[in-house]
Design a protein around this nucleic acid. Sequence first.
RNA 1: GGCCCGUUGGUCAAGCGGUUAAGACGUAGGCCUCUCACGCCUGAAUCACGAGUUCGAUUCUCGUACGGGUCACCA
Length: 462
Amino acid sequence: MDNTFFTENEKNIPRGTVRTRFAPSPTGYMHVGNLRTALYAYLIAKKHGGTFILRIEDTDKARQVEGAEELIYKTLAQCGIIPDESPKTGGLTPPYIQSERRGIYKQYAEYLVELGGAYRDAESPDVIRQRIPKEGTTSFSDLVFGTITTPNADLDENVLIKSDGLPTYNFANVIDDHLMGITHIVRGSEYLSSTPKYNLLYSAFGWTPPQYIHCPPVMRDKQNKMSKRHGDPSFEDLADEGFLPAAIVNYVALLGWSPGGERELYTLPELEQSFTIEGISKSPSIFDIIKLRYFNSEYIKQLSDEEFRAAAADELNKIAGYAASGENSLIIERLTKPRVDLLSGIAGLWAFLGELPEYDAELFVHAKSKSTPESAAEAIAWLAGALELAESWDNESLTAVMTELAEAHGVKKSVVMWPARIAMAGQAVTPGGATEIAVLLGKSESLRRLNIAAAKLAAGGV
RNA sequence: GGCCCGUUGGUCAAGCGGUUAAGACGUAGGCCUCUCACGCCUGAAUCACGAGUUCGAUUCUCGUACGGGUCACCA
């Protein structure tokens, strides 16, 4: 058989360009490990001015999951990992979905039989198996793990074409990677032990094998990989919880790769510049959501007011009084940003604005602020009087009023501030201080809450 | 079990024959402060074990232990 028609696509591929691919099966969620593999493949391509390809490996119909392919596109888009060639965009070497390439595999398999690299299974005539030499060894060089040599006797003669006519991963993968001109194969280390078989396939065809970059797994703990089954979060779960995609990408990049220096914060474009294959680790790494939260908090703090408003809109809009005025919005945003590491839960932080929680008079006791039920009752009486007369209701004026009150009565500022805040928020810990909360609440509501506190303290027998 | 791979603090990790063994998260203590958070300072905590090689091993070699991967008509 003539080999030339098979290589039609190859002539399209510019020589010398790096081409990498992410080749997921549409079987469900996008796991953190998967995402990292995609990221590394993308970064290696970009680092070298190359091409990043998305190929869908759907040769196992049984494992197909509805909507899984869309989720892959969506996730990559959210992360900014944009394929240069994909089923959607097309490219130099179409098609990019394996089920649309079935004819190709069959032809190559038959060609391989002619070449002596494969044969038909004796028991099942439609099945084609790889022929593996009985003697000798096969070596390949991995850019992460170094040179690995395996005795051919340890290699199985696996099925290349199944009885349904579709190829197995073992075969489709090699054919596609070659036809698509993939120069660097980035994948999980679970493929390390079958790589010699793939190299044997390459040499049986007379092709040059690609560079291999096998990545160690992302673990949930010392002995288990992360898995949906164990309840470990997928990318989507994390995003839903309020993690920013940029923070996830940054954290995941560093899980199993080190730039070498002390810097940890990298945007995607910065990673594209800095990524190195040498920095990829050989040993598995454990996913630490606590550290991810740290990255997330850093990214949240770096958001501009506009970006924060957009990212946290759902939560912010649940806050009572948030949209009441531009000033309110700004106060809430600025107070929230430095104290959250997750977007979800922001509204909960401010729930007291909507409704004064039930609280106990004990809350007015705070040693460090020198606040006692007696001093609190006094301070609240002063406050009610002074605030009633207040003409301007902004942070500066309120701070001035409260400080002057404290000075006039010869007490620490906190003796006034503490009870004021407790009275207005009804809880010990709040985002923002007494004056900011008063501004958000507005004059009448603030005074109403002050009165409630006064009554509460009076009832307490003070 | 065979074969392959790995092993630096609780976690991510730097290191690539000679270092007080970086840094980050977390943690402990402190400072700042109208609470909390932010920010800042300080501390505790690591080379799996045993043999070699070497003047000298966290770094090189071998073995042991432990962990992972793989041995499908799944990818």
